[in-house]
Design a protein around this nucleic acid. Structure first.
Lengths: 309, 309
DNA sequence: CATGACACATAAGGGAATTTTATGCATGCC
DNA sequence: GGCATGCATAAAATTCCCTTATGTGTCATG
């Protein structure tokens, strides 16, 4: 049970006044009037039962007691200031993004350098989390997640709808003389036949119950892996076209059907705690993500309105 | 221009909460509700732009940032607490009395031991100041002064009226066959013929202008010295009977005439700054002085009323 | 598995603590 | 001597907190 201190505002006034040896200057530093400092010092002396300043004409001096306090109090405030400053700086200069692996590998990886060039003062740390793991809501500034919902008070924007469609390597397609009908796919190996996306896509394509016994969806988090296996010709994967853009453009993969399916509400979300809605680095990153999406022609959510700091 | 800190009340709440890892306990320690702590922490996090606590169910944890702050903040508050505590204790246990020499030597000297026995926890320091010097209004807790008035806002009590009357040693009186009329005094050497008190006393005794060219009054501060010279038979001194009580009782001095004179407003005053009116040691000392005076049959002023701390 | 207890969050409202404004006062300086 | 400077003070206005009351999610328990 620590000793109770005099009012902190009085201590702060004393700290400043004892540094400047002037109530007026202390008031300026603290953004208040000379009268307020005078009041606070009076309060402090009243509370302590002894004077800390001797009022001379047009200047003040510390009393013996005041002198003894002054040093320690200044020291304590210096400790506080450096503590908050250091943590604040560390915090302002470092942006921690917890992203699910798909988004990190298929989207962030080859664009991040642009953000970093635009904002050389911000050190970005990407923490990818794989399927089965959870985003690091506690330690991240921003989270890009798919299935895992952020704490409900977080500000959350849907950034990419989880459309999906079968993808395969041209070589694999050629091996059966080309893929022209959904049924062709069934003649090829699948990278992950248990993925529930298959069933949904086939239904959307007009094929009722294709038997692909369900398994917890994990494609949201590991498309990079599936994509590589598909590129390597190991099978047909069911992937989100937007995330395969490069592979599709370079011909490493092909998407035989324009038809995409989706599970409503299964999307990638960018989210952050409301505390950080006015945080510079968070705003910069969020806006950059939105701008990139827009360049890609993706629908972009309106960012939540800002509030005065 | 130091960095501006978050609101200090929020920092204090954080300090307590981070020690207890509980808002409820922190609230108890600080004498406020759990809701208030919650509010303050929220405020702090809002201001800082990052969280300092992770809210788990029925308990809280420090975030990385919070942990980094916590240590320093606790340290800073400990510094403040020990600083105020130490100075406070030093201050509570030590009573500095700046007293004019007459009062110190002729009154305090042989009584102080009683006060010290009654209050063994208080260390009394008497700072006597001689004629010509000033009381140490700045560093003393209590001042006993005569001519020097305390700063006008001080609480000041008249304790001894400066009555005066001629005093001499019995031997000196016998040397002229006894002193029975004021005129007899003029036949003897005076310890300080320039003292204005002489003229006033002689006038009061019915003798008009006795020629004793004036000189600044200094008897208020050095009666001890004059008294010793009178006791040694060097001359007649004009002294305050109350302060010669012992010498008169033991026959070292005699006061030939009951007549005393006084200059209105010339008195000894006990005074202290209003800041200290409820200060324990100051009250104890003041009350002890008043009690001693009362025992001597002196009129005692009513102490100023106390105010709630 | 329902219930209660516990710990923190949140909203509304009131009130006290601070601040400001507007002076006064003493004194040092030109 | 007149003015500027720096602190004190009183009254008035705000702002900031804190409390009360209630909600939410979990854990523990019978």
């Amino acid at each position: 049970m620590p000793v109770s201190l005099p009012p902190l505002s009085a201590i702060r006034a004393f700290e400043a006044a004892s540094r400047h040896l002037s109530f007026t200057k202390a008031g300026e530093e603290l953004g208040m009037t000379q009268a307020a400092i005078s009041y606070q010092i009076r309060l402090l002396e009243d509370r302590l039962g002894y004077a800390v300043f001797i009022r001379k004409t047009r200047r003040i001096e510390l009393t013996e007691n005041g002198r003894q306090l002054s040093g320690r109090v200044i020291e304590a405030f210096a400790t506080l200031r450096t503590a908050f400053e250091e943590v604040g700086e560390k915090n302002a200069g470092q942006l921690v993004v917890s992203s699910n692996t798909t988004f990190a590998v298929n989207w962030l990886a080859n664009r991040l350098v642009h953000f970093q060039m635009q904002n050389p003062d911000i050190a970005v740390r990407i923490l990818p989390y794989g399927p089965g793991a959870s985003p690091e809501f506690d330690s991240a500034d921003i989270v890009v997640s798919a299935c895992k919902r952020p704490p409900k008070d977080w500000i959350s924007n849907e950034i990419v709808k989880a459309d999906f469609s079968p993808m395969l390597s041209p070589a694999l397609a050629a091996s059966i003389g080309g893929v022209t009908s959904p049924e062709d796919i069934l003649r090829l190996p699948m990278v992950d036949p248990q993925d529930p996306w298959w069933g949904i896509w086939f239904r959307a394509a007009g094929f009722g119950d294709v038997d692909l016994s369900g398994r917890p969806n994990s494609r949201m988090g590991s498309q990079a892996l599936e994509a590589n296996r598909a590129i390597a010709g190991q099978g047909v994967a069911i992937l989100t076209p937007y995330f395969c853009k490069t592979a599709l453009e370079t011909g490493q993969l092909q998407q035989p059907f324009d038809l995409t399916a989706r599970i409503e509400e299964e999307s990638w979300y960018l989210s952050y705690p409301p505390t950080k809605r006015n945080n510079r680095k968070v705003r910069l990153f969020r806006d950059w993500v939105f701008a990139e999406l827009k360049r890609d022609g993706m629908p972009v959510p309106a960012p939540a309105p800002e509030t005065a700091a």
